[in-house]
């Protein structure tokens, strides 16, 4: 009570988590991977900023998208980057993608009883040169997949991806089969369509779109280099390459 007495039951609470909206998505190709996320950050019905990146370059062959509680997400990315730097100093090379995936699992599970409130999607190029996507739950359960959506509009985007990437509920023409991997231009179109659709129907998605493209070593960057809103983030030549493509999304 205001008089400070304890004659009545009292309760106090503090909630250390919040949801900051937004959606992320990754699709693996035969020799490339696209990892994308919108840039809106919200809390409840308020927009905190229209540009808060959720997708981060880790190495020349790995990109991490983080969605959920933004404070935890940023801290988690910071710690993953730190561990990757230590690995570089110890081994004089970048950590392979599947090793980064296992590292993320152990880092998430280390916080099993006070978790990072984030869904992670790791995308990049495997040591054998194939495109790969790893998706995680907040406590480190993970799986390698060809495509995955997570975040506020996961329920809107994932059925569309099932249909367009995995060709679910579609029958191939007689004597033919569905392709296992789509070309980069098709994948980028599907990613843009997914986010414009999610922006249209979900209030927490919009403002900007960042699509990271990781290309396997030796793959032609035709159509990417010098394209509109394209920037190369690769640090070393003669390896895998990372690009980012920025697009506007509706702001309402």
């Amino acid at each position: 009570m205001p008089d400070g007495s304890f004659s009545h039951p009292q309760q106090r609470s503090f909630n250390p988590y919040t949801e900051n909206g937004g959606t992320i998505l990754a699709i693996a190709g035969a020799d490339f991977t696209v990892i994308a996320g919108d840039t809106r950050q919200s809390e409840g019905y308020s927009i905190q900023t229209r540009y808060a990146p959720k997708v981060f370059r880790l190495t020349d062959r790995a990109v991490l998208a983080v969605n959920g509680f933004a404070a935890d997400g940023n801290m988690f990315v910071k710690k993953v980057k730190q561990r990757l730097e230590w690995y570089r100093h110890a081994h004089a090379k970048d950590m392979p993608l599947r090793a980064i995936a296992r590292l993320i699992q152990t880092m998430l599970y280390a916080q099993r009883f006070f978790p990072y409130y984030v869904y992670n999607i790791l995308g990049g190029i495997e040591e054998d040169g194939t495109g790969a996507v790893y998706s995680f739950d907040p406590v480190g359960s993970y799986e390698r997949e060809a495509c995955r959506a997570a975040g506020a509009a996961q329920s809107l985007v994932q059925p569309f991806l099932d249909n367009q990437i995995y060709f679910k509920n579609q029958q191939a023409a007689p004597g033919q089969s569905h392709p296992l991997h789509l070309p980069l231009s098709d994948v980028l179109s599907i990613v843009i369509d997914s986010f414009t659709s999610a922006t249209e129907r979900h209030i927490e998605v919009g403002d900007g779109l960042e699509m990271y493209v990781v290309l396997a070593k030796g793959r032609s960057a035709q159509g990417l280099e010098g394209g509109r809103g394209v920037q190369e983030l690769t640090t070393r030549t003669d390896g895998d390459r990372v690009f980012v493509i920025r697009r506007e999304l509706k702001k309402d």
Partner: peptide, 11 residues
């Protein structure tokens, strides 16, 4: 409904 909204908006 949310899955339908997403799929329909795309297709």
């Amino acid at each position: 409904s949310s899955e339908l909204f997403g799929a329909a908006e795309g297709l």
